[in-house]
Design a protein around this nucleic acid. Structure first.
Lengths: 213, 213
DNA sequence: TAGATTGTTAATCGATTAACAATC
DNA sequence: TAGATTGTTAATCGATTAACAATC
């Protein structure tokens, strides 16, 4: 399982397959073929088989894949069979929305700690969870043992927070601040930027046209 | 400007360049070279020049790019020089957070309408904006003339909402529901899925290790 | 002019798709 | 067995990077 040679797009698609297999409405499918997966996710059947091939043999020629086994194996690859505790930095609007989002614990990503640097927030509760002082991050995470952080702080604070997270033993960061975070090579960052997504979409609008034209 | 042959990764990077150029803290740079842009964004200098080359000549050999002119030209390419009104579907936690996010209007994407199907929300205000009935979407958007929609509804409702959006003249959709939306070819969709991002990151964790080990 | 940096071409790299022998 | 579908190899496609003549 030479992880270093797995393409990133493959990992992203694995997550898509897993999300599909996890959906309760699909739990009645006992076996699933690559053609069926293409139908469900829009990802080419050959691509699906190729993606899996990085990790061994999964299916039965002539039959397909046992849905439940496939789900378990992809979950194992992505290391989400067991709960992965997540900490959240930044108790603003977005942080609050994420804390209230049931999809995270449902997919084995419970938020186990919330941190902020704002004295008006520290000690108060958000969704029934006490907001901790970011200064105590390292000490508290010695207990929480989280390796995953979600960063929802303003741009200006993001780099400092990233440094603190690395110091506290965090290994991967989901960053909502629209900044390039500088972290050691061993730490992985993924950025989500709403404005950037809208800019890309905006390109596809026809110039000068408005809805209804 | 053969739009159809511009690679999607190029558009995503253009948005990154623009975000950098838009940052107030960088407004003192009068000219900027591709090497400087690499430093700032992590994107290879050759890649930067190649990306721009799809849209004509921008810079001065030996000197670089005039920062302000570059900003304007990229903004024009992405069609964000002028305000692009956006409508928001789903007045839940995430929708509320997006509505309160100052970054959207700051980048010329003001949210001009909010819709929901929940009778307990319709008519009430969120961030001082009245929540409209999704049933009135088409009629109201005849006035709003928005071409961009952000979808923050539960999975089960997403496809129906997408159909209504298409019917109301929406051309591009930023979808936060973890479902594959079926839309006509002329409509563009980008998906943002928090759980998927976390799954990809989770892959990079070492098995069995915890923070502090 | 000399030094710097662009815009573009060509080379490399990597990812997607097609095809098909293996096999349930 | 015949039909279906996998896993993998090879072919295609596309994107990134290197190199350099053009030029400010």
């Amino acid at each position: 399982m030479e992880e270093s040679k797995v393409p990133l797009p493959t990992l992203e698609r694995l997550a898509t397959y897993l999300r599909y297999l996890n959906e309760s409405t699909n739990r009645d499918e006992v076996t699933i073929s690559s053609a069926r997966m293409e139908e469900a996710t829009g990802i080419h059947a050959a691509q699906f088989r190729k993606d899996l091939s990085y990790f061994g043999e999964f299916g039965q020629p002539g039959i397909g894949y046992k849905a439940d086994e496939l789900r378990q194996r992809i979950a194992a690859i992505l290391k989400v069979e067991d709960t992965q505790p997540v900490i959240l930095i930044g108790a603003g609007n977005l942080g609050s929305a994420l804390l209230g989002y049931a999809g995270l614990p449902q997919h084995n990503f419970p938020i186990v700690g919330v941190f902020d640097n704002n004295a008006n927030k520290i000690g108060y509760k958000l969704w029934n969870r006490t907001i901790e002082d970011i200064a105590d991050l390292k000490a508290i995470n010695r207990e929480l043992k989280s390796q995953i952080a979600i960063v929802c702080v303003p741009n200006a604070a993001a780099q400092k927070v990233a440094d603190q997270l690395v110091d506290a033993g965090i290994r991967v960061i989901l960053n909502f601040a629209p900044t390039v975070l500088r972290v050691p090579e061993r730490v992985f960052v993924r950025n989500v930027c709403f404005v950037q997504e809208l800019m890309v979409l905006s390109f596809f609008l026809s110039p000068g046209l408005q809805a209804g034209d």
